[in-house]
Amino acid sequence: MLPTARLQRMNHGSQFRALSLRGDQFARPIDPFLGVDHAWISGPTFPAHPHAGFSAVSYLFLDSETGIDNRDSLGNRNVIQPGGLHWTAAGSGVVHEEVPAEPGKTVHMLQIFINLPEDKQAQAPHAFSLEARDVPVVRLPGVKIRVPLGAFGEIASPLSLPTDVRLLDILLEAGSEAEIPIPDGHVAFVVPIDGEVTVDGQPFSLLDPKAPVNLPQGPRRVVTVQAKNGAAKAVVFSGTPLNQPVHWQGPMALASPAALNEAVQRYQRGLFGSLHTR
């Protein structure tokens, strides 16, 4: 039997609710992913905050009612539109903030936290975006697969990534299925987004807040995702494990206690920079 994990409800005030997945929920880590939040955000929730040592990635679903106003201490400011993606490789440290672009409308998104290789954790932070129109799409009978990160067959995202990961946003019509090959060496898992999905015959549903998430790690390298009772949506994640320690303090995660302590001190001295006034 493949190992499983469970999504946990996570609310932060009245304007942020999420189903959250964290690596410490498993007997085995989901390296290189540190966490995933399937989130609905309807107002400013988290004040400007620091990151160091990993990448913070925001992916908006096409049904999001509005975009995300994103800015950071590097001077970047942009609106992540529905269907788009923004990747912040925090490296040695950055201050970051995201809020819904239009008050009163709800952002439907994934917040993804991806570890950086240890030799990149001390590098200068940088960020890049992918517009919705530039996300490659694969169409199969009854299936639409968006490929914002990584590749599916011969179709590849245009992004060059600091960590080897893949994200497939899969929309299935009722009764349809898709066979998803898992790249050699990747750890993979599936998150249900909407409707009822079966993964290798095992049902998963967003309606159950503790729905198990499949983590195929055995020799079988193809996962079958199917919609049985109506249309459904799921996201398949995979990535090459970094096999390095993770030391946390708040929103910083580095590969050694010394590097973590140095990052904390840099932030306290104001060396991560600050955001310009809105």
Rank of each mutant, 00 (worst) to 15 (best):
L74R: 15
M252H: 10
G239M: 11
A18S: 15
F46H: 12
D169N: 09
G83A: 04
E173H: 07
L21C: 06
A89Y: 08
P181S: 11
T240Y: 01
G84R: 01
A56Y: 00
T224A: 09
D31Y: 07
D184G: 14
R269Q: 14
E97K: 05
V79E: 07
A90G: 06
A255V: 03
V222N: 12
V138Q: 07
G83R: 08
L260G: 03
E131Q: 12
Q111N: 09
F26Y: 06
I145N: 03
P50W: 01
V235A: 12
F16H: 10
V187P: 04
A101H: 12
G201A: 05
A253K: 02
S42G: 14
V222H: 10
A122Q: 10
P44L: 04
A178H: 04
F237C: 11
E179V: 04
Q268K: 15
H186L: 09
W40S: 08
A178R: 05
Q226P: 03
V199H: 08
G84N: 01
P183G: 04
S14F: 06
G185S: 15
L60H: 04
S256E: 07
A27I: 01
K144I: 10
S129C: 07
S274K: 14
A231N: 13
P212L: 06
R146M: 02
D69V: 06
G75Y: 03
Q15H: 14
Q25P: 01
L140P: 09
A18I: 05
N214G: 14
V213T: 15
N76Q: 04
L110Y: 02
P209G: 13
G150N: 02
S205A: 13
L140S: 09
L215K: 14
T224C: 10
N115K: 10
V190L: 13
G153V: 07
R6S: 11
F128A: 06
A124P: 09
L167N: 06
E179M: 05
T163R: 04
S238T: 04
